[in-house]
Amino acid sequence: MNNSDLLLQMKDLKTYFFLDEGTVKAVDGADLEIKACSTLGVVGESGCGKSVAARSIMRIVAKGGRIVNGEIMFHQRLRDPETGSRSSNLVDVLDLAALNPHGEKIRSIRGAEISMVFQEPMTSLSPVHTIGNQIGEVVSLHQKLDSKQAREKAIDMLDRVGMPLPQRTIDRYPHELSGGMRQRAMIAMALSCHPSLLIADEPTTALDVTTEAQILTLMRQLQEELGMSIMFITHNLGVIAQMADRVAVMYLGKVVEDASVEDLFYKPLHPYTQALLQSIPRLGAKKDRNQRLASIRGSVPDPYNLPRGCPFHPRCARRLDICDKEEPPLVKVDTGHQVRCVLYK
């Protein structure tokens, strides 16, 4: 792989939460790679650590959580001081995991180089500030514009995300907008400084299906226009198929399979991935009306007491004797297809 394509590389990241009840290993040795101008889908059940991994990149892990190991190498495309556009030649590599989470460096990256769209458009915007105030704030923070220019920029962004009547919407409060419009405003806010990476944490989960389709189309279109990468976190495999170039499947804080989107859907290797794919209801697959949809037996283990060996072994249909003893290594099966399972050693 050409190294200049690389935008972000996460190596053996461990983010633990030290709580009174015990230690939660939310992310426990995750490896990810995001290439420039591509989309990485991250899938997994609730509690698999996908959101915490994303927040570790932004260094906004909630209280009690800490990165204890690993590195997050961010290949920052420096901006040309005159034109303000990014050049692909000037690359500054820095380890986000080593930065002070309250420091100036990470704050100059948040919102400007890496920005984030959250799951709940209802609650992710401040209820007592106008949309324009909230978008203009990011713009004037990172781009040193005065309030009038920031406002124009905000209107321009609202226009780009397909907000009707941006001149008027900019002075609206979030509760005056529908869920889809709020998520558009969130996206406008996240993209207002043209970041090179957009982290979208289940951005459409709270929306209805038609709105979801519109938002997904919008994100793809903006990705092409602005030339950015997207880290798309979801538990919806249908959305992954539509959005992602590559997919990382996470289970209990680890990436258990990492493949191109085609390989993942046509040649899934990890038993967990296979089980996940079987649990999707398919249109037109009417074999027997009474046949039950396949589900993964058992449930996600207690986060305070993770199983020894492979974390998936208690629920795995293809378990071997060794699985509860030895932690499986990440096996490279094919070019660009890795799996963490002893079956492929």
Binding site: M58, I60, H102, I106, R107, S108, I109, R110, G111, A112, S115, M116, F118, Q119, E120, T123, S124, L125, S126, P127, V128, H129, E137, V138, L141, H142, M186, M189
Partner: peptide, 26 residues
């Protein structure tokens, strides 16, 4: 603990600015 506070942090604002502008206001 509300999500809008997280959004404010994700913008790159300083902690003091985040706290006083958003949750304190509410």
């Amino acid at each position: 603990n509300k999500p809008y506070v997280e959004t404010a942090y994700a913008k790159g604002l300083t902690e003091r600015r985040v706290i006083w502008k958003y949750p304190v206001r509410v």
